[in-house]
Amino acid sequence: MITFTTVYEFAATPEKVWELFLHYGFNDRFYKQELKYPEWYLAEMRESGDSVLRKVVIESGRQLPGPVAKLAGSGFRETEEGEFKPKAGTGAWTRTPSALADKWTEKAAIRTEPVGDAGSRMTVDFTVGMDVFGVGGLLESTWEKRLREEWDALAEAMRKTLG
């Protein structure tokens, strides 16, 4: 199992960052147009007190390493379930794969904080674990690389949108 952290800064308040991060239209465009995911859809999103509960289904279309692709089969997708508390500046989610769910752990915690008068910092702590004999380490490093690239692209798209 590996853990890693990504940190991004924005020239916008944490409130504006959360508003964009949870915005359906922004996410739909980003995942389908920027990342070219064959499938990204919002299965559920509702507010519960100060929390936003969100469930998203994702098919990235990214190639898995050969041995893992055979184990996962075609049409590999993930279901992301998260709880976000924008007022508190925190959130967390887990992704469950359509195959190998008993051997695959992918979760993250996100937090935002103000920086200066009108800026913010977003920190995301990831945990990725792939308990697949012989290829677990390969899959973990592949997934870490993929997540870093996608989050770097997400941060850049957010910066462009926030101005």
Score class of each variant (00 low, 15 high):
91 G>S: 14
130 M>T: 08
49 G>Q: 06
128 V>R: 10
110 I>A: 13
10 F>Q: 01
94 T>I: 06
82 G>N: 09
149 E>T: 06
65 P>F: 04
107 K>W: 09
32 K>M: 03
17 V>D: 01
20 L>G: 02
16 K>W: 02
48 S>Y: 02
44 E>Y: 06
125 D>I: 15
81 E>T: 14
64 L>S: 03
118 A>Y: 00
19 E>N: 04
80 E>K: 04
74 S>Y: 06
83 E>N: 02
48 S>H: 02
149 E>S: 13
114 P>Y: 00
86 P>S: 14
30 F>V: 07
14 P>N: 03
54 R>K: 06
23 H>N: 11
116 G>C: 04
141 S>A: 04
121 R>L: 00
25 G>F: 01
131 D>T: 10
60 S>N: 14
151 W>S: 05
156 E>S: 14
100 L>M: 15
41 Y>D: 14
137 G>I: 10
150 E>N: 15
72 A>P: 10
8 Y>A: 12
76 F>H: 06
37 Y>E: 09
2 I>Q: 09
95 R>C: 12
19 E>G: 03
80 E>V: 11
67 P>I: 01
26 F>A: 08
33 Q>A: 15
154 L>Y: 12
23 H>I: 01
117 D>A: 15
109 A>I: 03
145 K>R: 13
152 D>T: 11
3 T>Q: 14
146 R>V: 15
152 D>P: 09
64 L>V: 04
41 Y>M: 05
140 E>R: 12
56 V>P: 05
67 P>D: 02
